[in-house]
Simulated scan of single mutants.
Amino acid sequence: MKRFFLKSIPTLQYRCFQTFFFQKNPSTNMKYPLDKSDQEWRKELDPEQYRVLRNKGTELPGSGKYTNYFPEKGVFVCAACKELLYKADTKFESHCGWPAFYDNLPGKVKRIEDDSYGMRRTEVVCSNCGGHLGHVFKGEGYAVPTNERHCINSVSLDFHKEETNNK
């Protein structure tokens, strides 16, 4: 039955099906300085944070608490491990439905090529714990110094008014 089902799907649909159900995201198997078990993450994160940060989910557009929040000073940190990620002055209005930043703090975000769901994108994860933050898009024409948009899930972030320590 399984063979008949797979052969009956046209090639393009099958490739999308295969990508969606069988492709592993490379960041899942990487090691990070902060290494916790799945059980530990489940205890520390609320269900939505766990879904996004650990299972590479995406929050609904426009639903995040930081989407329309534009502080002049401070720093956005990883909601899982509190690693400093983005300065407040790099956040900009992109009208995409998620918080957008044009640059991260040096060495705080790891970029990983992401071919999931039949698309070619660049995933960004916290370089300390590997938590999924979102994706980076280049060349969209925003008037920002880097010509990049880091499209980040609010649930992956916390905000601190003052940059108290720079790990």
Rank of each mutant, 00 (worst) to 15 (best):
M1K: 14
R3I: 10
F4P: 00
F4T: 09
F5Y: 13
L6M: 06
K7V: 04
K7C: 09
S8F: 00
I9A: 02
T11S: 09
T11G: 03
L12D: 14
Q13C: 07
Q13S: 13
Y14I: 04
T19F: 00
T19Y: 01
F21E: 11
P26W: 01
N29E: 15
N29A: 12
N29P: 00
M30A: 06
K31M: 06
K31W: 01
K31T: 14
Y32I: 02
L34N: 13
L34T: 12
D35W: 01
S37Y: 08
S37D: 11
D38K: 14
Q39V: 12
Q39N: 12
W41I: 10
W41G: 12
W41P: 10
R42N: 11
L45R: 03
L45Q: 09
D46G: 07
P47C: 10
E48K: 13
Q49V: 11
Q49W: 01
Y50P: 12
R51T: 09
R51A: 15
V52P: 07
L53E: 10
L53T: 11
N55I: 07
K56T: 04
T58D: 13
E59M: 06
E59K: 06
L60T: 12
L60Y: 08
L60I: 07
S63M: 05
G64C: 02
K65Y: 05
K65S: 15
K65P: 05
Y66D: 06
T67K: 07
N68W: 00
N68Q: 13
Y69L: 09
K73A: 13
G74Q: 01
G74E: 07
G74T: 13
G74V: 05
G74M: 03
F76V: 12
A80S: 13
C81R: 07
C81M: 03
C81V: 04
K82R: 15
K82A: 12
E83D: 10
L85N: 05
Y86R: 07
Y86V: 05
T90P: 08
F92G: 05
E93L: 01
E93T: 13
S94Q: 06
H95K: 14
G97K: 08
W98D: 14
W98C: 11
W98K: 08
P99F: 00
Y102G: 08
D103I: 06
D103R: 13
D103E: 14
G107F: 04
K110L: 10
D115S: 14
D115K: 14
D115C: 08
S116A: 14
Y117I: 09
M119R: 10
R121T: 11
T122H: 01
T122A: 04
V125F: 02
C126L: 03
C126D: 07
S127T: 09
S127N: 15
N128K: 12
C129T: 04
G131E: 06
H132N: 10
L133H: 01
G134F: 00
H135I: 08
V136L: 02
K138P: 03
K138H: 11
G139P: 09
E140K: 04
E140S: 07
G141D: 08
A143L: 10
V144I: 09
V144T: 08
P145Q: 05
P145T: 07
T146S: 12
E148D: 06
R149V: 03
H150S: 02
C151H: 03
I152P: 04
N153M: 03
N153A: 03
S154C: 01
S154Y: 00
L157T: 01
H160V: 11
H160W: 09
K161A: 15
E162N: 10
E163I: 02
N166H: 08
N166K: 15
K167R: 11
